[in-house]
Structures are given as C-alpha cells and as structure tokens.
C-alpha cells in the first residue's frame, strides 16, 4: 500500500519535472558551473573536519577529536572566539545600519551627486589599500596619524598602533568598517532605484508628510529582499574577517589581540598544514553564521515574498 503511494508520488513528481523542463533548461548553464566548481568542492570538504589531513598523506578518520581539542585544550581558539564576537558585534550591525542609512541619504540627492557619493563610499571595497593604511598607522613619527597627533600636542611620542596590544583590535575594526560598505551597500542602492515611483505619489496623497514617514511606511517594506541580501553579505564579511588583520597588524598579531577564528583556521591550514583541524574550525564558524542568517531572515520575513 505504502509502496503504491510512493510510486504514485514519484510519478507525479516526474510529470511535474517534465512539465517544467523549460525551467531546468534555463537553470542548467548556471548550475553546471555551480555544481562543478562550488557544490562538489564544498561537499568534498564537509567530512574533512573529522579527519587528520596534512595534504601529503590521504585524510585519516579521527571522529570528533578535532572538535574536542578545539573546545577543551586550544586556549588560543577560545580567545579567537572572543575576538571574533567582539569584532562581529561591532562591525556587523554598525556597518549594516550604515549601509542602509547612507544608501538612503544618497538616494535623497540629485542624480549627478548620487553617482559621485556612491563611488566615494564604495571605492574602498575596490582598491587594494593596505599599504596606505600601514603608512597612516605607521609606528614612527613619519606615520600620518602619529605626526598629526604630535603636531596637535595630544601625544608626545609616537604610538605603535600596529604592534601595541592595546590598539591592534581597534585599528583592525576601523579599517574593516572602512571597507565594509561593499556589496550590501550597492545592492541597497539598486533596491532604492527599483521602488515604483507611483507608490510615493499615492502616499503623498494619502497623507505621508515627510522623508521619515516615507522611509518607514513605504521604502523599508518594499526593500525586504535587498535587506536580506545585505544582511547575508554583512554576516559573512564580519564573521570571516581576517585578511585585514593579517595584512595590517601582522600574523600572528601581538598577544593574539586581533586573532579571529578565520585567522586561526588560516594558521592551522596554511602554516601548519593541519587541514583537518582547520576545516573543523571553519565548520563551527559556518554553523554560527547559518544560525545568524536564519534569525535575520525570520525578522525580515514579513517583508519578503
């Protein structure tokens, strides 16, 4: 009986598939490349967290030992969790709000200025500028920040911004925020342009009186999809941040003060070649990011289709 039901279900699915073959045809070009170069590598990497893998010998299954080591004996990992949480909580929400706020404010300007301001705020994500930040925060009196502060008389001697344990995290956060107006910001800019103008005209008749009311009653509710996109980008950006610290304050940073989970994974993967352990670290990070994105999608769900 159950078997018959299954077969019926299968047949119904099959007719559904045949009915929708145009969909599959349009999906195919993307999916072929996506499966080969993304899905297969991801699936192959999933079980690596349960192995001991040094890239020279084939991976050896070790069960949960990578995870128990991480949580019970890797003190630097525990420290990196703390750094990552501070980092993500500070840069994530702040730059998310900033992305939205700036995209909105720019939208209120005349067209020519829109292009210019969008460029100014987005250009940090396009340029490779670690060298210039190194010169700004340089520890000798030639550093821009040091010489500026000395000239103003705020400090008397140069500060080692990039190596002093008290400052490295703050410096990293500033630079991270500076480059974080990226994909999410541009997507939100595009979203604002996509809103139907007639909605605003209708709203004006119905008694919307100023920019704020317009923002809250019309703009935000019609930007759900873009808000979700920006949120996912922001989660990935703030949790996997590591390159900024590595390029700026050195690797490892003083006292591991700017040592994020991703830096830890980099350390084990590409310095010590313990790929199994590194991939266990990444797995934990993935679980955290996945939960975060689910929570945000629940909050935004009333604005989505």
């Amino acid at each position: 009986m159950a078997k018959g039901n299954n077969r019926k279900k299968l047949r119904r699915t099959w007719t559904e598939i045949k009915r929708n073959k145009a969909c599959y045809a349009m999906l195919a070009p993307f999916m072929i490349f996506f499966i080969v170069f993304t899905v297969i590598p991801v699936v192959m990497s999933l079980p690596m967290g349960f192995t001991d893998f040094n890239m020279a010998q084939p991976p050896k299954f070790v069960g949960f030992s990578n995870y128990t080591t991480l949580f019970f004996s890797d003190k630097i990992f525990i420290r990196s969790i703390r750094v990552t949480i501070v980092f993500a909580l500070l840069t994530g929400p702040v730059s998310y709000v900033l992305c939205f706020l700036l995209a909105w404010l720019i939208n209120e300007l005349p067209p020519k200025l829109k292009t210019i301001f969008t460029l100014i705020f987005y250009i940090p994500s396009m340029a490779n500028v670690y060298t210039v930040w190194q010169l700004i925060f340089s520890g000798d009196i030639n550093g821009y920040l040091n010489s500026f502060l000395i000239n103003l008389g705020i400090i008397t001697g140069p500060i080692q911004w990039l190596t002093d344990g008290r400052y490295v995290l703050a410096v990293t956060i500033i630079v991270q925020m500076w480059i974080s107006l990226g994909a999410g910001f541009l997507a939100l800019r595009a979203g604002f342009q996509n809103i139907d103008r007639s909605q605003y005209e209708a709203a004006a008749i119905e008694g919307i009186q100023n920019r704020w009311q317009e923002l809250i009653y019309i703009t935000i509710p019609s930007m759900g999809p873009q808000l979700m996109f920006a949120a996912v980008m922001q989660i990935v950006g703030s949790f996997t941040a590591g390159t900024v610290a590595q390029n700026l304050v050195g690797f490892p940073s003083t006292d591991y003060k700017a040592h994020t989970i991703m830096t830890h994974a980099y350390d084990y993967g590409w310095v010590r070649f313990e790929m199994g352990y590194a991939s266990a670290i990444c797995m934990i990070l993935f679980v955290v990011m996945f939960i975060c994105s689910r929570l945000i999608s629940r909050v935004l769900s009333k604005y989505m289709d």
Binding site: T13, Y24, F34, P41, V42, M44, S45, M55, V236, S293
Partner: peptide, 25 residues
C-alpha cells in the same frame, strides 16, 4: 518546480560556507 526550494537553500548555504579547504578541493 521540484528542486527549486532545495537549490535556493543551497545557494545561500554556499555563500555562508567559507573554508580554506574548499580551495584545495
């Protein structure tokens, strides 16, 4: 269509899953 939901989810998951092991694979 059959599979559309799964594919939508896989896209978001692949955005979130960052691992340096992927490059090796």
């Amino acid at each position: 269509f059959p599979g559309s939901k799964v594919i939508n989810n896989i896209i978001v998951i692949s955005l979130l899953y960052q691992s340096n092991v992927i490059y090796i694979m």
